[in-house]
Design a protein around this nucleic acid. Sequence first.
DNA 1: TTTAAATGTAAAGTAAACTTGACTAACCCA
DNA 2: TGGGTTAGTCAAGTTTACTTTACATTTAAA
Lengths: 67, 67
Amino acid sequence: MKNKIKELRAERRMTQDQLAARLDVSRQTIISLERERYNPSINLAFKLARVFQCSIEDIFIYEEESE
Amino acid sequence: MKNKIKELRAERRMTQDQLAARLDVSRQTIISLERERYNPSINLAFKLARVFQCSIEDIFIYEEESE
DNA sequence: TTTAAATGTAAAGTAAACTTGACTAACCCA
DNA sequence: TGGGTTAGTCAAGTTTACTTTACATTTAAA
């Protein structure tokens, strides 16, 4: 699953630390998501959509068999 | 996090077994999701949206502090 | 009224999301 | 020439999603 977290964060001029704080997760989690080491939980996906004011589908690109 | 899986599945006249098969997960996973014992991974949420032909936001209702 | 299909519970195990902490490197700028 | 800020790695631990198996209960037909 691809995502646009890094770009969206950059557009909003936020640091990884600031985003992590707003989402109430660790900075390591942001790094791992941006590097696409793993996928977020659906809870975190909803929080990201809220912070970036867009839909989950706008942030994450689901690809068949990305499992 | 609340969800409408049971209702959406019923509307489509599918059994838990059939839905599980289409999503490539166990029946136990469907039961647990419908009973809201836990949340789906974002991957599974995308698959559900595809099967039900709607958006993730149509299936799942995010509530602040549902963690 | 019995049988089969559909739904449910419980428990033990695996995999993946997320945390914490310690440490590295690049980039300012004072 | 540092020192602070930002982004990154690595590794070990916790939590949660998901699987598997075995068994119980409800529901609907025959």
